[in-house]
Design a protein around this nucleic acid. Sequence first.
DNA 1: TATTGTTATACTCTATAACTATA
DNA 2: TATAGTTATAGAGTATAACAATA
Lengths: 140, 140
Amino acid sequence: MDPSSEPATGYLITKLGQAITARFTERLRGLDIRPRHFGLLVALANSPAGSQKDLGRVIGIVPSAIVLILDDLEARGAVARVIDPGNRRRFVVELTTAGRALLADASRIGAEVDDEILGALTPDERRSLHESLGRIVPTT
Amino acid sequence: MDPSSEPATGYLITKLGQAITARFTERLRGLDIRPRHFGLLVALANSPAGSQKDLGRVIGIVPSAIVLILDDLEARGAVARVIDPGNRRRFVVELTTAGRALLADASRIGAEVDDEILGALTPDERRSLHESLGRIVPTT
DNA sequence: TATTGTTATACTCTATAACTATA
DNA sequence: TATAGTTATAGAGTATAACAATA
């Protein structure tokens, strides 16, 4: 209750999330992407056949921001914008082979960061933490 | 491992932290402050007699940003900048009675957000989550 | 007229550097 | 000259609104 003696759980989660993001951002520099690019790659892997607008809705990013992230990823050949023949206003965004490799590399880095941050927990605690989080995080 | 089937724990923590921050920010609007003001109030309650530079170091904010947050809080009478008699370049920042009330109100809101987000967990899971997090979050 | 993607613009946040006053 | 606080400025990130092409 008293924040000076016992921080709220939400406060701890937020602080930890910021620390993880900072470290992940730093490690991703070797791949020349940032977490937002990773998030989009993950969303693409999960729902491969979406339009840009669909993608934005899934990860909670506004369409004009999607454009900029896709520009980066397309320039390095990680994604392809293919015109939807049935509706020529839309692009169907596809993950390329290079994009899948990039996603794999970034995922590995994410797993490393996880290990560094969560290494202080016992395997049981870590499993329990993951399971609890999975239950309360909006499914995306 | 595969992000399409099993998101990393760090990814879940980050997403959850963002959701909590968004909700907390929205709820704090009634008090006319933002999370950064709350963080500064918490830091003040924990180390009451610091200079502005000390404060910034504690919560990881650069001195020029501290100035702006303190301007807001001072304008509403939540904190007072008192010149350090021993070194007239420094201010000792103090939490006022109104500031303590503001901190209490904001803390209550934080607890409400916690309840909303963590309500899906059993009390045991929630305790366990809090304890695990407390062990790996940088002490601030 | 509505929708998809894009571009232009503005607003917030944050950080760096210049400035002042004290030391 | 060094330091605490402040101010000015610039950069990244994000959101809103205007625009072009298509429906």
